[in-house]
Design a protein around this nucleic acid. Structure first.
Ligand SMILES: [Mn+2]
Ligand SMILES: [Mn+2]
Ligand SMILES: [Mn+2]
Ligand SMILES: [Mn+2]
Lengths: 153, 153
DNA sequence: TAGATAAGTTAGACACGTCTAACTTTTTGA
DNA sequence: TCAAAAAGTTAGACGTGTCTAACTTATCTA
């Protein structure tokens, strides 16, 4: 066993965190990954509905940078998850739950982008980084971001 | 077609970004996901070597919160990728490339955690958020984080 | 209004990262 | 020293998210 008898270093090295806490952190990330697809889709669907009155697979595919069959498959997953309403060959709409999730995601996305920009990051980079970062920001961090934006305007 | 004749809204809605740029953002995130496993592993392997002199699958599994066969499989992927050196049933070591990647990841991890803490986030939350955020932070953003830390000490 | 084009679906493949069950090898300690 | 325990591997399964090829449905336009 590596933590036997007179093991010393691990108690002195600041890098060596509590294994359980560390595992908890990684579990959180894996968990966030599971929601990521749904979050990006409902967010985008809400944007498309606002901009065009409807969300069509062809537009979703273009903006996501994926092929049409990927969208078909994922939309049917969202339907099973109760986030979208949809009839075959027709546009996609959000359920109440989907709408609520979309609004939360859009808020979060906006805050992260604005925050990065308030740090001096250019818009393109801010958008790029935010698209990934948004899924890993806790509510506490989000509030800290908001406060920082307020404090620097 | 939804962008026909007198389509107006999309030119006025700030939310509706350029589709191509948006697709580029999502592509970046998908790309980051592909490196994520490798980054977390080499970072952790470097930490374990520093703390214990060696990195053993059992410790990697514990700290990652996954089962042993997952580690075996992923380590062999890292070996194929040229990031680790390893003989069957023995401890894991980093190649020069693995070492370089690990150092870059540890630096990034440290900066993200310190930055979040400088915003008033508690350590546990900062570590948790950072574990996911770190993979989506561009060098430009990282430097902005560093500057912000300096400016607030 | 019918033929051409665009949009959407289905089927089937693939890589990734996870798991359990069963097996092998190494390490420990009586 | 050698049997038991711990560590590690192998085999095989699963869900996710992506793709291409082939097909079906809807929309546009001559
Ligand atoms: Mn996103
Ligand atoms: Mn987003
Ligand atoms: Mn990480
Ligand atoms: Mn990390």
């Amino acid at each position: 066993m590596s933590s036997g008898a007179s093991q010393t270093r691990e108690d002195f090295t600041p890098d060596s965190r509590d294994p359980e806490a560390q595992a908890d952190g990684f579990a959180h990330v894996r968990n966030a990954h599971e929601s990521e697809m749904a979050e990006d889709y409902v967010e985008l669907i809400a944007e498309l509905i606002e901009a065009h009155g409807e969300a069509r697979p062809v537009d979703i595919a273009e903006r996501l940078g994926v092929k049409a069959p990927t969208v078909t498959k994922n939309i049917s997953r969202l339907k099973v998850a109760g986030l979208v309403r949809r009839e075959k060959y027709r546009s996609i709409f959000l359920t109440d739950r989907g709408q609520a999730l979309a609004e939360a995601c859009r808020r979060r996305h906006r805050i992260v982008v604005a925050f990065l920009q308030s740090l001096g990051i250019d818009e393109v980079t801010a958008e790029r980084d935010a698209e990934g970062i948004e899924h890993h920001v806790s509510e506490a961090t989000l509030i800290a971001f908001e406060n920082h934006i307020k404090g620097s305007d």
